[in-house]
Design a protein around this nucleic acid. Structure first.
Lengths: 221, 221
DNA sequence: AATAATTTTTAGATTTACCTAAAACTATTA
DNA sequence: TAATAGTTTTAGGTAAATCTAAAAATTATT
């Protein structure tokens, strides 16, 4: 089995490779894990020895098939536990990330399968992220980031790409939660903030916030 | 907070001090944790520094109040997770120990309280052990070990003092589960095994097994 | 009380994951 | 293309938790 730490590295490498194309850089991993580049280099050697990543000095890394499977397993667990916390234990969506961060390392495949069953085989976690099934398969959601949407378009919020408590509490206050229908009223030239219409109410969202809101556009009629 | 390892030491020290009177010896801790006496000595110094135990060289240790509270917190978590696994995820009582051993180290007091609520504030875990409440209080069950009961007495099985899968599966096969009423038919002089009557059926239980079955005697009429 | 047996502790190493500081690469740009 | 800036790696070290082997203390036995 992989250590707690190894799993965290794999997870972060996976996430970075999903958002940025090409190989994953040492510094990106370091900042994702709040650690130093030198520490990352040490671990990359170890992960390469275990054939979880392909690693070329100074060039960055990519996950091997084996590494990708391991990463997805951790992500599956993380997201299932988040559903458990919100659906069963009545946590809010902004409270669950850190606890799931611990629970995701519990090592028992029977446990994961039983939990999945208990939760009714959910397809999405409380932040709208897809939950891989036991074979690691999931449909990536066809989303667009809010700040990239053109004026006049309509859509539904289907997820967020940041899970920190302050960010999610802010969204909650704005009424921007998953499932909410929005229309883009315009983009402010000065600061890049986005003008939205939500239930006929005008809402201004900073560019930084908009970057982390995932939207599914309404089909063109 | 205390490390994973420190918590395990505290838990084992607590358990040993419950079963044997007096101070807890280094070797007892070592065998309880499958480690070596030298490693235990190292850790005892550390726990003493943190004022979790009172430690006198060569004399053994006792938990301080602070140490006892920490130990009971871990035990509370362990037992609540066991209830979760059996009641909600439909695990058998012989499958839950190892998983709970991991879950007990998850660090979130809100989580524990929510879980307790979700489970309906259970008083006992699947092995009959009492679950401490959030202040650490619990009623220790007035039990007697099966091998110590005199011929002719009757009682109800209320718990077990071993949680290993082989032991519990064995009990299951014999029909000796929690809640079952038994009568002592006699004790075999030759090997100390116990003759039981369960639903008018004669059952022979080895002394080793009897030692780990906890019984509440029927009130004398 | 002296010796033997047992238990516990110390001494010195190992492994994992981390660190800082310096060296070695790679990329940028003047 | 040579200098500079930025990134990554190496070198050497630390802390936690473990180990073996040897020394010290305690307990039991003659």
């Amino acid at each position: 089995m992989h250590s707690f730490t190894e799993e965290n590295y794999l997870k972060v490498i996976y996430h970075i490779s999903q958002t940025e194309p090409g190989t994953v850089q040492t510094n990106a991993i370091a900042s994702g894990l709040n650690t130093k580049a030198a520490s990352v280099t040490d671990m990359l050697k170890k992960l390469a020895d275990k054939q979880l990543i392909d690693y070329i000095k100074y060039q960055g890394v990519t996950l091997t098939e084996k590494g990708k499977i391991a990463a997805i397993k951790v992500i599956r667990k993380h997201r299932l536990w988040e559903v458990f916390l919100v659906d069963k234990l009545k946590f809010r969506w902004d409270e669950v990330h850190d606890i799931a961060e611990e629970l995701e390392h519990i090592n028992s495949s029977i446990l994961v399968e039983r939990l999945d069953d208990f939760l009714g085989f959910p397809k999405r976690d409380p932040h709208g992220d897809p939950i891989p099934d036991q074979h690691g398969n999931f449909e990536p959601s066809a989303h667009i980031h809010l700040h990239e949407i053109a004026k006049g378009k309509k859509g539904i919020i289907i997820g967020v790409s940041e899970h920190s408590s302050p960010f999610l509490i802010h969204l909650e206050k704005l009424g921007l939660t998953i499932g909410v229908t929005i229309a883009i009223d315009g983009i402010t030239a000065y600061d890049g903030s986005v003008e939205l219409l939500v239930n006929d109410q005008k809402i201004n969202v900073s560019r930084k916030v908009a970057q982390h809101i995932l939207v599914k556009l309404e089909e063109a009629q």
